[in-house]
């Protein structure tokens, strides 16, 4: 058998395995993810309706800070010990999300520290 023939076959084979694994793993995760998603929407719905209207601005600031948890994705993208296009995108993502994390939590803290009852 000609080894030159073998390589493409192996590559194709490996690729199809990866694709299958990805597709299979993906389908399985999707259901889990959907379950988690729907339950989280319910939790969010009930928690947020209990937020007092006076604190709607801090609510917006803190949800903004919290949504920067997308930094998790950016960190994984930036993770590999090499510099290429995708790690570059990851670093920019990390920096952008960091602005938001620090800025969001600090500005929320600033707002909340102002809400005081009468000092008697």
């Amino acid at each position: 058998m000609n080894p030159h023939d073998l390589i493409p076959v192996q590559v194709a084979d490996a690729a199809s395995h990866v694709a299958e694994a990805a597709a299979g793993g993906h389908g399985a995760f999707f259901l889990t993810g959907l379950t988690v998603f729907v339950l989280a929407v319910f939790v969010g719905y009930h928690v947020v309706w209990r937020v007092t209207p006076a604190l709607h601005s801090p609510l917006m600031a803190v949800t903004n800070a919290v949504s920067s948890v997308i930094i998790v994705g950016a960190l994984i993208a930036a993770g590999p010990a090499k510099i290429d296009f995708s790690t570059g995108l990851g670093f920019v993502g990390v920096a952008l999300a960091s602005v938001n994390i620090f800025g969001g939590f600090i500005v929320t803290q600033r707002m909340l520290s102002m809400f005081k009852k009468k000092q008697k």
Binding site: V43, M60, V66, S67
Partner: peptide, 19 residues
Amino acid sequence: QNNLLIITGALVGSSGAIL
């Protein structure tokens, strides 16, 4: 495939929708 992002996103998404 990260549950943390899904949960947080859903919390923020529903919060913004309610507001």
